[in-house]
Write a protein that binds this DNA or RNA. Structure first.
Lengths: 197, 197
DNA sequence: AATAAATGTTAATCTAGATTAACATGATTT
DNA sequence: AAATCATGTTAATCTAGATTAACATTTATT
């Protein structure tokens, strides 16, 4: 793997745990670097998800297609975030979600085949992943509360403040899907907000 | 701690990792057993959450009170489940949620003061908690998708099938809150379902 | 530059679910 | 047994957001 790409991952991990140089070398030898083009899929609903992916650059959407064929976006992932279908990854059963690149995207990929060996070789990673999953879980629970306690307009304003960088690079109809509303209604909300200020 | 109560926890943990007898003894010496009465609070919104709790018996609700004073139930916890405000627990900042007992409830409590020592003494627990939090995160993400892709009636039917035991012991208006609908509308849904079958 | 494809807007109409309010039942307390 | 409190039901009215459809703008492709 290209050394400077690996360093981005190591810097990220070292914010949570401190790896020795030997551990860093082992880690980088066990993961893989890969580029995807805009539109390519990392995971497809129904397939078994083989990788947990750390995004180096670019952007992905994670979405579910329901029985009526409607697309529901669960999350976006940009630099320094993770993406995959974790449920599928940990149980090795068919994925509920698609993960698709919205831009040219660079990833570091942790294969299911090596993840147990990796934990065995570097037990600290168990702690590292526990910590980042805890954060993700907490964020997910807060999002459930927001989906029930806030109006669509309030959710949009929250999203815009929370993720200003994401809003700029993603089409509005995808943000509507993430917020659980139609693109038409988001358009209405935006024009209301312009009138208000 | 009462030995047979500790055994319930050990049995649960040993489904994920296998503890030696020495580790089991250390674990039980570091956690505490406690009983709560119906109505008592384990965590109160605004306080810092000091404990991760494993429910031995009884039932709790985790809820958030929003700016309008509305209560939103995030989860119920019964036997063999966990409860706390994890966000508050890991960052030791004020809690977003209340956790209140709906019945007389027995818990085993992991204090924030000992949790790091516990991980140091029994590294396997790092793996154990990673695994259960992964499961919780996956469930939470699926719930977000359901909240956007299913109607209130569909969400209720799903809940009833998924947690038949919980439905029986909890007042209907709390189930409505968990589903993100009013008690009046849940009542309407139930009468519709009776007519349908 | 012209065309096509993707994205965004506006407005009319419709509906799932909220709100309000009155009443019913059941459990607890005195 | 009466009274109080918690829980559940029904029905009328209201509203946030969906649906439909027509059009506008921006971006990509030839």
């Amino acid at each position: 793997m290209i050394k400077e790409k690996g360093q981005i991952l190591l810097d990220y991990i070292n914010k949570y745990v401190s790896l020795s140089e030997a551990e860093e070398a082992i880690l980088l030898s066990m993961v893989t670097y890969r580029k995807y083009l805009k539109g390519q899929f990392i995971v497809q609903q129904g397939d078994v998800c083989k990788y947990e992916c750390f995004v180096l650059s670019g952007c992905t959407k994670t979405f579910h297609i329901d029985d009526e064929g409607q697309e529901h976006i669960v999350m976006f992932s940009i630099e320094d975030w993770w993406t995959s279908d974790m449920g599928s990854f940990i149980t090795q059963t068919p994925a509920d979600y698609n993960v698709q690149c919205l831009e040219k995207t660079e990833m570091i990929m942790f294969s299911h085949d090596i993840i147990e060996d990796l934990y065995a070789a570097i037990p600290k990673l168990e702690r590292f992943f526990r910590q980042i999953i805890q954060k993700a879980f907490v964020a997910s629970q807060k999002r459930i509360v927001r989906s029930f306690s806030l109006s669509a307009k309030e959710r949009y304003v929250y999203f815009r403040n929370q993720y200003p960088k994401i809003e700029q690079r993603i089409p509005q109809y995808m943000i509507a899907s993430y917020l659980g509303i139609t693109k038409e209604f988001l358009s209405k909300i935006k024009s209301q907000l312009i009138l208000e200020q």
